[in-house]
Computed example of a mutant assay.
Amino acid sequence: MTDIHPDQRVAVLADSQNLYHTAHSDYSRNIDYEGLLTEAVAGRELTRAIAYVIRADAPNEEDFFDALVDIGFETKIKAIKTFGDGSKKADWDVGMSLDAITLADHVDTVVLCTGDGDFSRLCSHLRHEGVRVEVMAFGSSTAEELIDATDEFTDLADNKEQFLL
Rank of each mutant, 00 (worst) to 15 (best):
D3F: 08
D3K: 14
H5T: 15
R9W: 05
R9C: 04
R9G: 07
R9V: 06
R9F: 02
V10H: 06
V10T: 15
V12K: 07
A14C: 08
D15Q: 04
S16L: 00
N18Y: 04
T22L: 02
S25P: 00
D26G: 05
D26F: 10
I31A: 10
L36N: 01
L37T: 03
V41T: 11
A42S: 12
A49W: 09
A51L: 07
Y52V: 03
I54P: 07
A58Q: 13
P59T: 04
P59L: 04
F64A: 11
L68E: 03
L68C: 06
V69S: 04
V69M: 00
I71S: 06
F73N: 03
F73I: 14
F73C: 08
K78A: 15
T82A: 07
T82Y: 07
F83S: 05
G84W: 15
G84A: 13
D85E: 10
G86E: 11
S87C: 13
D91T: 12
W92N: 06
V94L: 14
V94D: 12
G95A: 01
M96A: 00
S97R: 01
S97P: 08
S97K: 01
I101E: 08
T102Y: 14
T102H: 14
T102E: 15
A104P: 06
A104R: 10
A104I: 01
H106C: 05
H106Y: 13
V107S: 05
V111Q: 12
G115L: 09
R121S: 15
C123S: 10
H125P: 00
L126P: 02
L126Y: 07
L126W: 10
R127C: 04
R127K: 11
G130A: 02
V131I: 00
R132D: 11
V133A: 08
M136F: 02
A137W: 00
A143L: 03
E145M: 12
L146G: 01
I147T: 09
D151S: 10
F153W: 12
F153Y: 07
T154V: 11
L156I: 05
E161N: 13
E161T: 13
E161H: 10
Q162M: 13
Q162A: 14
